[in-house]
Design a protein around this nucleic acid. Structure first.
Lengths: 210, 210
DNA sequence: TAGATTGTTAATCGATTAACAATC
DNA sequence: TAGATTGTTAATCGATTAACAATC
């Protein structure tokens, strides 16, 4: 185990490792070598061994890796066992889509509450999660320490909402608004999901060819 | 203009350039230097000039870049002016959220049709887009050449649906299912939006600190 | 003109790949 | 044991940064 600073390239591959190992486990595969895993993930065996060595020694010479145990190690590295909690800000279509379809528990999260300003949605329950008025947020975060705030509000509301979350002590923000939140100063981590950037990348790739 | 092969790192920054230039234009800024743009985007001036030089010479010594014209150049590089079309497969919560809230036109796309198997949604119109039965897809694609298929179906349906899209001649797939589509053989480009990967990355980053 | 800023070449830094001794 | 495969060190490759002549 030689920690130091793990590069962002490695970190972004960890969830993919976890996903592929989950699939292997579900398929009943017990052991996997770096070369076999590499083949199915389109990575070199070398890279996989190099990546894993950032966190420890999980394999065995001549054998490879035990699928279940490697999956468990990576889950721990990802913090999936920490009982993280989340609240969602903005219960529009996207917010509701996440609440109804996204399996927070499969990522080790508990979605504990939702907040909105619309009277027509406040007070309702969506997938067992209660929708509160936004004005309750400050008090809520004071009483319920929360790991992550999910921003599914309109772009214009992104910055003030982010500030409320930071003031309330969240550690991270999952940002679905189409704006770059630059919060490096606050110590809060931001993960952006930019649909438009993703579609434009695809647009470039399909336009390139012709 | 020295084309060659543009690296994926550069390509993924292009939509961000576009987004920031759009903001600058909206704010009435007429010109911007690589160092000013770099400051606001957290990139070095050098990197910006290096990136842009993959596609041409858009600046002027002593002046910098004209915001409007650079924005236009990048839009063209991204293929935003190609009249790309899209169809969406799966009109569940996420599909509907995209249809109702995502501005396809702002990325240069026209969302032309939606397909689902649920009788309760077939025949309806959502944001002016007609929902057809999935069984019509093959015929539709034959009659309406389509740039991109959007996969918002359940994970289990991902691969067969992708195959239908490829058979129908789409150039790219925007994949929201939680599976890695490995279609390198087909010549069709896949852009994945993996919510779980994104949240797990955030989980790692907030877990790391303590 | 003088100052500013580009596009590009060279230098540096970091990430991926290859090689191999250690060992299950 | 012999074969397989790890973890790690060294080599290569690619991307970022620095430097600077060209020039608006």
């Amino acid at each position: 185990m030689k920690k130091e600073k793990v590069s962002s390239a490695v970190i972004r591959r960890l969830p993919r490792y976890y996903r592929h190992l989950t699939d292997l486990a579900k398929a009943g595969v017990v052991r996997v070598s770096s070369s076999a895993l590499g083949e199915s993930m389109n990575l070199t065996a070398s890279q996989i061994r190099q990546d894993l060595s950032c966190f420890g020694e999980f394999g065995q010479q001549g054998y490879g890796y035990n699928v279940e145990s490697l999956k468990g190690e990576i889950a721990a590295i990802l913090g999936m066992d920490r009982g993280h909690t989340a609240v969602i800000l903005g219960v529009g279509n996207l917010g509701r889509a996440l609440m109804e379809n996204f399996h927070f528990d499969r990522s080790g999260f508990h979605l504990a509450a939702a907040f909105d300003i619309s009277p027509s949605i406040i007070g309702r329950q969506i997938s067992d999660v209660q929708v509160y008025p936004l004005s309750d947020l400050e008090q809520y975060l004071k009483e319920n320490p929360t790991s992550v705030g999910i921003l599914t509000v309109p772009r214009a509301a992104a910055i003030p909402m982010a500030e409320k979350l930071i003031a309330g002590g969240v550690k991270g923000i999952w940002n679905f608004t189409n704006s770059d939140l630059n919060l490096s100063a606050s110590g809060v981590v931001v993960e952006n999901v930019h649909f438009a950037d993703s579609l434009l990348t695809l647009s470039y790739l399909i336009s390139e060819e012709s």
